[in-house]
Write a protein that binds this DNA or RNA. Structure first.
Lengths: 256, 256
DNA sequence: ATCTTGATTCAACGGACGTTGAATATTTTT
DNA sequence: AAAAATATTCAACGTCCGTTGAATCAAGAT
């Protein structure tokens, strides 16, 4: 009956005068809060109420603006992919064009793939950092990976692999696909920034030091591609026994 | 009052005669079911009831045997780590010993690290496959990775890195740590088996084909290590501009 | 045979979950 | 200024959540 409407008035005042964060529209603030929280605890580890409280909006707005929690998750994932990937594609084409009539160096191709991500994760703001941590989890999730990664990244990846194959003439396509798989695994774990390398190295390396990654990943991966492609052609067995046979022994099967 | 105890009698009969799965003790069946479900949907994506229903036991047994859901998750993670890592360590030492008085090939060191996992994921049974998919998610999770990976894998990893450094004399320690980081990222994404490489390659490569990974990963990673370590010594800038400078442009900062 | 201990079942708890519909407020269009 | 469209608030819904305590069962020890 005599309840005073503190909330509404208070929110309005805070939005127009006091706090910075209330400047953005609610829909965007939900995306920001969801991005941060989903990156930390995954889809099921975050409730709609967690997100709306962090965003300072009402719970019902998630269903209103996005249709539901799952759709919000997809929208979070889509938002920055659409900002990022056109630029990565343009950079890749630029690398390719500037190497004509030859083919670009493998390092440059890999860099075109990784640099826009590493650069934004390092200096693009907290939102981008959260986003890439989220990508790391999605990429390794059997539930979300096949859906979201395929939908938003595969067109770019296909073009990237095509350019890689140009730069690796005569190399079996399978080697390139596996080489890409190893690259994306290394890249996404980097974005997870779990701090594990910090502990392992006793502080010598830091997860957050993406410049160190930028200086090393392309070289590492390019060498890996070359090693895969200079290996014996599709001869499944024989030769090169040193790397495969030397000290390996069979693992016994589990007892039934 | 007159309720008939169908459940108990039925379960007992099924356990002793009809079904295979009831042969194991309840505690182990909970671990098995949790392993499978956690691997698919993560910690928060699976309820205690999901697990106990899959295991065919009462809900209360999770709290009774493990103390709670979180402790069950940790127990699932610990169980196979304790089977696996002593063997990986023994294999590493065997590789090292059999190379004396020299140092082992990088490929053999990496293989000692990866082969026991790849072999079990390929031929160790469904439980092992689930387990490594779970490891892939944990390794990329900012919430669980630092806790569980550090606790159960770091002693092994430290020894592994020490041997790597023996095999890379004169190489800066940071290069080895980063090289390991890229390796574990590539390895764990492989275990996630999201099927993404299958779609990308049009069926040419299969996520589940861990033998293909075994044939390629050690070569790829060893070449990567060598590339990191033969690069210009800790000279942070200069030289080698081709790999770093050529076609890269600055990414503009976000508007404030 | 009785006692003891550990394993399992059952029912229930308070709370958090995602979503909804009606009511209200705000902005845009006419 | 009125009307329409959009945005936000509030309260509540039914459901599922993890955990608990008391009761029952199954064996082994005394």
């Amino acid at each position: 009956m005599t309840v005073v409407r503190r909330k509404t008035a208070g929110r309005k005042a805070a939005a127009s005068t006091a706090g910075r964060p209330a400047a953005k529209p609610a829909k965007e603030r939900i995306l920001d809060a969801g991005e941060q929280l989903f990156a930390r605890n995954g889809f099921y580890g975050v409730s709609v109420r967690d997100i709306t409280e962090a965003a300072g909006v009402d719970v019902a707005l998630v269903s209103y603006h996005f249709g539901g929690k799952r759709e919000l998750f997809a929208a979070v994932f889509r938002r920055r992919a659409e900002m990022l990937n056109p630029e990565r594609l343009a950079l890749l084409e630029e690398v390719r064009r500037s190497a004509l009539p030859g083919v670009p160096a493998l390092e440059d191709i890999v860099n075109a793939f990784t640099y826009p991500m590493l650069e934004r994760s390092a200096r693009g703001g907290a939102g981008w950092k959260s986003y890439f941590a989220l990508v790391a989890q999605v990429n390794n999730s059997p539930e979300w990976g096949p859906v979201l990664m395929t939908e938003h990244f595969d067109p770019l990846v296909e073009r990237f692999i095509a350019v890689l194959r140009e730069a690796l003439p005569g190399c079996d396509a399978r080697e390139v696909y596996w080489g890409y798989q190893f690259l994306t695994g290394a890249l996404t774990l980097t974005f997870a920034e779990t701090g594990r390398i910090d502990k392992l190295s006793g502080g010598l390396c830091r997860s957050s030091d993406l410049d160190s990654v930028h200086q090393r990943l392309a070289r590492y991966v390019a060498a890996g591609f070359r090693a895969l492609c200079t290996a014996a052609a599709p001869a499944p067995h024989g030769a090169r026994s040193k790397t495969r046979r030397s000290a390996l022994r069979k693992i016994p099967r589990r007892p039934p």
